[in-house]
Design a protein around this nucleic acid. Structure first.
Lengths: 112, 112
DNA sequence: CTTGAATTTAACAATCTTGTTATATAACAT
DNA sequence: ATGTTATATAACAAGATTGTTAAATTCAAG
């Protein structure tokens, strides 16, 4: 989906943030993502669907597993909105431009 | 409240983001904030309550008006969570530290 | 002190969210 | 073919969210 509404909404849930934090360390299957939580599998499955629709993760079949990966591009939009708003508030647009220039081509934006 | 749940949830609504964007340009009364929207006054009033509970704005009586100001400290927490997660994903913690060091004492964090 | 403007609260309906359990699908193993 | 494992979907309930209109509050002005 990739709009700020869905991105922020997806980030508003602690379970989903925990899932993203886990995926920031490396990809994982749905089962592996379920393990740390006390909620049911279907509940996690739907959290993953929300994250996927927000373009925060991608999923690919791998045998009978489904491998999940972080797709942090969507988060950039959210971070940018915050930084822009703060920049206006601070009256320091220069620093924002600097920031964007620095973070625009994020490393090689990992995502082969 | 000042936790990531409420911050992200507050930011997930486009009306609330528009209100924050407006306030980034300078403080305003409730009436002024209502004007651009087609929704009712009470609806805006409750959006403001959500923003206040998320510590994204503060309000102070001024005669029969109530002046609203941006209080962007709460946004920092959200931005930091995103930056941290991305930093792990990129495997570049150094850049994160740099970023935090740079943005920690935000100007003088405006808020007299 | 009465009237009017600015804002909030109350009461309610419609819609979304998140969880549950039971069922379905898909791929692997025997 | 049959059973087992991994994951998704269906059906449903409880609670949150967002909007509405009507009533209450709060201050300023005449």
């Amino acid at each position: 989906m990739m709009n700020l509404d869905t991105t922020f909404a997806a980030l508003a849930d602690p379970t989903r943030r925990a899932i993203l934090a886990r995926l920031a360390l490396g990809e994982a299957t749905v089962g592996e993502l379920c393990a740390p939580f006390e909620i049911s599998g279907p509940a996690v499955s739907r959290h993953l669907k929300v994250l996927e629709q927000a373009a925060l993760i991608t999923r690919a079949r791998d045998g009978q597993h489904r491998r999940c990966r972080l797709a942090p591009a969507a988060m950039s939009g959210a971070a940018e909105w915050i930084e822009t708003t703060r920049a206006f508030w601070n009256g320091t647009l220069d620093k924002l431009e600097e920031h964007l220039k620095r973070n625009a081509p994020t490393e090689k934006d990992k995502q082969p």
